[in-house]
Design a protein around this nucleic acid. Structure first.
Lengths: 335, 335
DNA sequence: ATGAAAGCGCTAACAG
DNA sequence: CTGTTAGCGCTTTCAT
């Protein structure tokens, strides 16, 4: 293994000069830099991560907890995860993953052993058991999602309440009076997953404000469940003309289900969804939707973390404004 | 931060005794051990990961490359990933993730800096560009999947060729003579993803052997594509009575599509799939299937890696025998 | 069964 | 702008 002293000798400089050349933490003359870089390349030098971590007290590794459990939409979660990983690399960090099941023990372990410098936690519940730990830990963390009490934490997410409202307002503006929300799987609400709850809040509040008749239906992520919910919705609200869907996995099956029940989209029924843009665009009927900005959220989560590692103050709450893209699935109510 | 010398002082022993108590690498008297463990607990001692890695030349971290790109089934990939993470923890290792895009650079980086002790690579292509690197690296690796030339590598996977054959044989045994394979998205074959290719090989070879008429159709993972493929299949092979599906994401849409085309399952059409068991079981018509043993594969991949880290010799190839579970979607051909 | 002490490879004062 | 050197916290010989 080639080490920093080898490079130093080869370049005719001291080890610290090699170190500073690499880190840029002090000025190095152009010639020296060139010589050092040449030696590094020539010898194929790679600094030892453990030695670095020990000497600098920084591992350049972030921990990320990926929620992979019942009811969550794995592809969407992985969009966040990929964005986090990609952005972390831009800041010269790697990402260590923890499963949800590792829970607080896992977080504590990687933080206390200095395996990671900072932590990113997704799938936050309103009363998440990990919050006290995250507040107490000596390492910074960022939550993707808002718990009931975010005091002392740094959180970022799409403003899901506003998103729920925005969907309703779009439908209201088109003249719809009777609407329904088809939500995520029941487990998600049972666990009080923050973002799902907030969509319901926004949806319900906006519907009330507009004097609309509304109902909410959680729904398993299977085509069969989609059919069942569609039927039930029409049975309970025969005058239904607007639907908000917050369940990416069964968007297409739901549309199919409504059409098989004799409702044309958007002629008889206007649909709007919360889902990734690429999905909304590529459906047979492009769906009016509020994008889930996983790209931005993951990116900003890492940036927040980097600021905290730099001791740069960061906003405690970052709520991304939802933006609705009107597509072919919504239209004025037929009169 | 509490360090090993603090624990040593508190317990009235030397640092090396604390270290050996933790590692078990030399005998410690019961009393000493008890005293040390008490001190560790009392002081809340956690060994510093970087210091350990430097001194022992082991990071206790594995790298895992997760394939998240066009055409791959994210939930299935994550089943492997979770199994790897869970098993790694049982062996006291953590898992660092790399995206596919990091490619060889990423593998080289984490290996050369001693950030990780070993590597797991998924989504192997027949002529995978990473193979030379993996062969050359000074750290052990395990591939989940078989490249065209596995020489010098350690590979594990379900025997997908045998799986393809087994599906055909099951249908042949039921008297079917005209069959089709609905496969993964086209990109997967274009990239020459090993497992997908092997299913096709097994399917085609077995069909020929049994004198059956057969066709193969890649299919995008969308319900619309499912409908298109179903129609095409019936147009091209009107006498079709058996179908093998190797595309977990559109299993249910495909069944729907065939039923809407007037074919009852299994009365008119027998279906067999390669997919996770839980999915096969919970469909409206439980589907005869060969399980994708992600649990076992991930677990054994880690175990192979642990053996290699121990310098215990391991088999270069581990092919898991497929096993078919007959369910309600297959029946003897109507006469 | 335990201790003493020499590193592991790097960073960051400190010194010039 | 560069060199010298003292650790970082742990593991592991080498002693006893």
């Amino acid at each position: 293994m080639v080490k920093i002293t080898d490079v130093a000798r080869h370049a005719g400089v001291s080890p610290s000069t090699v170190s500073y050349t690499l880190s840029g933490k002090r000025p190095i003359s152009a010639e020296t830099r060139a010589r050092v870089e040449a030696s590094i390349r020539e010898l194929g030098y790679r600094p030892h991560a453990g030695a670095r971590a020990l000497a600098s007290n920084k591992s350049n590794v972030l921990a990320m907890v990926v929620p992979l459990r019942a009811g969550i939409n794995v592809p969407v979660v992985m969009q966040f995860a990929v964005s986090v990983m990609t952005t972390a690399r831009e800041y010269d960090h790697d990402v260590l993953v923890l499963t949800q099941e590792e829970g607080e023990k896992g977080l504590r372990r990687v933080a206390d052993t200095a395996l990671v410098d900072a932590l990113i936690v997704m799938d936050v519940q309103l009363h998440d058991p990990r919050l006290p730990l995250l507040r107490a830990l000596d390492r910074p963390s960022v939550l993707i999602g808002f718990p009931a009490d975010p005091a002392g934490l740094t959180c970022i997410d799409l403003d899901f309440k506003a998103a729920g409202e925005l969907c309703v307002e779009h439908l209201a503006g088109l003249g719809h009076r009777v609407i329904g929300l088809i939500g995520s799987p029941p487990e998600v609400y049972v666990r009080q997953t923050a973002f799902a709850q907030r969509v319901v809040q926004g949806f319900t509040a906006a519907a009330a404000r507009h004097g609309m008749s509304s109902t909410v239906h959680p729904c398993e992520a299977t085509p069969a469940a989609a059919r069942t919910v569609a039927e039930r919705l029409l049975r309970e609200q025969p005058a239904l003309t607007g639907v908000v869907i917050h369940n990416e996995a069964i968007l297409e099956p739901l549309i199919d289900a409504f059409e098989h029940l004799g409702l044309r989209v958007p002629t008889d029924l206007s649909l709007t969804a919360l889902c990734p843009d690429d999905q909304a665009e590529t459906l047979p009927v492009p769906v009016t939707s509020i994008a889930i900005p996983s790209r931005e959220v993951g990116e900003q989560a890492v940036q927040l973390l980097m600021s905290k590692l730099d001791n740069t103050p960061v906003p405690s709450a970052t709520l991304l404004r939802p933006s609705l893209t009107a597509r072919a699935s919504t239209a004025p109510r037929a009169v």
